[in-house]
Amino acid sequence: MATNGVDIANLVRDTIYRATLLLDDQKWEQWLELCDDSFHYAIKSYSPEISRDMTYLQGSRKELATMVKLLPKHNTDHSPLTRHTSVYTVDVAEDAKSARAISSFVVYQNMLDGVNSHIDAGESRLFLVGRYIDVFKCDDSKALFVKREVRLENRRLDKGSHWPI
């Protein structure tokens, strides 16, 4: 049972890495089970072209659940994504009921059907680079995502994606 800040930090790291695996495996509902009801998700990037911070996608847990439910109705690039996440910092609040974590990630796109599969399938390409800025609600046994900001370095996104990152 987690009883101090170090244990809470370990719970946070574990949740971030579990989320990475679930997102890679496209287990969207199980990923959302790691999120509190109040969860808010956003993909953001700063554009030096227009000198503005931008929000590329955002939504509540309910909105994300609807979005992923509708994925089968859309044509999409099915090339699986592999996220490589490294948790850099975990700051646990004094009362140990919340925590903030910053992780670095890169996302590789493992080509399947996005272009000419005969030639491209099986190749892995760097797709995204950025950071996860996460906020957690914590107790002794679990850490739940309250907020995830996916902060991209990319503004060239080519075909883009239908999936949460």
Partner: peptide, 22 residues
């Protein structure tokens, strides 16, 4: 939100359009 839910790089339509022309 209105713009990007359809036309953003993670929106519903733009990705499909780009798959089409690719």
């Amino acid at each position: 939100n209105h713009h990007n839910s359809i036309w953003g790089p993670f929106g519903r339509n733009l990705h499909e359009d780009l798959l089409g022309v690719t």
